[in-house]
């Protein structure tokens, strides 16, 4: 009698467990940990601006300007500057800076205001010695060095841009605009 009862209770327990397991396994709950782990950034990185980084070459400035104002190669607009690729070496569409999403600047179309207005940057920030080239370079490369909780994009530590491209953007921002 006792045995039968135990048996019945065990059977019921097994049944409920299988029920839970079955129903639970019917729920979609895929793993995201691997995707996230690969996507996380390393710590903030301090960079040394390469020699000859800041340039007056109109083509370099034009490339910096283009990267600043555009989002990607597919939908990129305006005159396409010499020496800038639309695709990455692996064939993927190249992403540009989309800096105007957050910043206003000369000629910006639909400039945002999450970041400071970079209009007249040379007169306001460079000529007054408030900023220097290396500071601007570092800000674009990895702004976390200057502000741990920044809302600004990280552009060199993420590998989205090369040193040269960061130099071109910096050259554009600090240049005199016509």
């Amino acid at each position: 009698m006792n045995k039968i009862l135990t048996l019945a209770i065990t059977a019921a327990a097994v049944l409920t467990n299988t029920f839970a397991a079955d129903v639970r396994s019917a729920i979609e709950s895929p793993d995201a940990k691997k995707i996230l782990k690969k996507d996380y950034l390393g710590p903030a990185k301090k960079y040394t601006m390469p020699a000859g980084c800041i340039s007056n070459d109109p083509d370099a400035i034009a490339r910096g300007k283009f990267i600043f104002h555009n989002l990607n190669g597919g939908a990129a607009e305006g005159h396409f500057p010499k020496g800038l690729a639309k695709k990455l070496p692996n064939g993927e569409v190249k992403q540009y800076g989309n800096c105007v999403a957050c910043h206003n600047i000369e000629d910006a179309q639909g400039g945002g205001n999450i970041g400071p207005d970079l209009t007249n940057y040379k007169a306001y920030f460079m000529d007054t010695n408030t900023r220097d080239n290396a500071w601007v370079y570092q800000k674009i490369a990895d702004p976390r060095i200057d502000n741990e909780n920044t809302h600004m994009t990280i552009n060199l530590t993420t590998g989205l841009f090369t040193e040269t491209e960061i130099c071109e953007m910096t050259s554009y921002i600090v240049s005199e605009k016509k």
């Binding site: 992403q95 989309n98 957050c102 945002g112 809302h151």
Partner: peptide, 26 residues
């Protein structure tokens, strides 16, 4: 809150209380 991805952004970068109401590309 964790920054990640090609631009090093987190949800918080665009949705924290200090940027609410600012304009992101219109």
């Amino acid at each position: 809150e964790t920054k990640r991805g090609g631009r090093g952004l987190a949800c918080l970068s665009c949705h924290s209380s200090d940027v609410i109401g600012s304009i992101l590309r219109t």
